Amino acid sequence: MPVKSYLQAVDFTNPKYLQKLVENRRVFNLKNCELNIFESYQQAYRVPLTFNDFVITSMVQGKKVMHLYDKPSFEYLPGETVIVPANETMIIDFPEAANETPTQCIALSVDETYIRSTVQYLNEYYNPGDGENSNWRLQFDKYHFNNDADVASLINKLVRICTSSEASRDIFADLSMKELLIRLLQSQQLYRVAEEKDHHTNNTRLHFVLHYINEHLTENISIDMLCRKAYLSRNLFFKWFKNQFGITPLQYINRERLKLAKQLLANTSYSVSQVGIQCGFKDTNYFVRLFKSAEGITPGTYQAISSYKK
């Protein structure tokens, strides 16, 4: 399980102000968004929750079990975020909630007009220009994910802003919310193009570049070669890639190599150094540092755990 970035602690409601023990709610209204802080202090099951706007939820403490989109249920834990469209009912279980172990979750509901204007801004200024299918759009096929450092930092900032009494909090919330939406859209863009790259190799420049990277993961991938494949100068290529996906080409290459490394570590008897070399890492120490930074454990420990589970 990749390392997750956790949200900062949020003060719980003073017990004397609790209105209910399941999904007690505090609300902070701003111009373009609304912060909700939910807390539960006793077990409960099949609790429905619906928002009239698009909502970004993130767990702070405890565990929920979520039922969404007629898909299999899943555990929802700290360090994770779930996005849900307007008027979609979430059915939630609280199997471990108690006075001593309450659950706490924040939910940022965002005005639909604000989302449209943000997507329009991206399509106008950062569209790759490779056809209609490349337009930015908010998607819900990947709705449950681990927080990276940027997303966690922005949500933490929005919680601080929304709960403050600053007269200018709407301005600061507007800037942070726009950045959060753009980061989520970039992450979804990468997920979508990466999923399509093998079946739509020549659909767009984005598909072609990602397909080339994954076809040559075990080789030395030259950034200059990627620039030539994309028909862009080095500076333009870095800017274009980062604008589309929110990460650099090297970060994407390393991410894909680590995914391959996990498969090899779990299913082969290769040594850590052999796995690193097969995944395109010339320096074993660099591979180990990168793996531990991403997964929280060393490749050797990951391999041992995987062997134990078999």
Rank of each mutant, 00 (worst) to 15 (best):
F140L: 07
K64F: 05
R205K: 15
L18H: 10
K71S: 12
I161C: 01
T101E: 08
A44T: 09
Y126W: 05
R137H: 08
Y191D: 06
I277T: 08
L260F: 06
S73C: 08
K16A: 13
A266Y: 04
Y191T: 01
Y286T: 11
P128G: 07
Q8P: 01
Q139P: 02
N147L: 06
N127R: 06
V27Q: 14
G280Q: 02
P102N: 15
I91M: 13
D11A: 12
K157H: 11
V3S: 05
G62Q: 03
V288A: 09
P95I: 14
N203T: 05
S5I: 01
F145T: 02
T301I: 14
G276Y: 03
I56R: 00
K31I: 04
D198S: 14
L190C: 05
V65I: 12
S187M: 09
T89F: 06
F245V: 04
G296A: 12
E256H: 07
E23V: 10
F140G: 05
Q186L: 08
I221Q: 01
H211A: 09
I106G: 05
R169W: 07
A304H: 11
K142L: 07
E166Q: 10
V159T: 12
F54W: 07
D70Q: 13
V60L: 13
R192I: 03
L154V: 09
F28S: 06
N147A: 05
E195K: 04
V65A: 03
E88P: 02
S58T: 14
T218S: 15
P2Q: 03
I92H: 04
G280S: 03
E34D: 14
P299I: 07
D174P: 04
L190W: 00
C162I: 09
S187E: 03
E112T: 13
N214R: 08
V275A: 10
N32E: 07
T57A: 11
S58N: 15
Q251N: 10
D111C: 01
Y45H: 15
H144L: 02
D198T: 14
L181S: 00
R46L: 10
N36Y: 12
Q43T: 12
I297M: 15
K31A: 03
I253T: 08
K31H: 05
K282V: 12
L226G: 04
N235K: 13
F145K: 02
F38P: 04
N135W: 02
L232D: 00
L264E: 04
E132Y: 15
N147Y: 00
T57D: 00
N203V: 01
D70L: 07
F291M: 09
I305W: 03
P85I: 08
V272I: 15
P249L: 12
Q61E: 13
V119R: 00
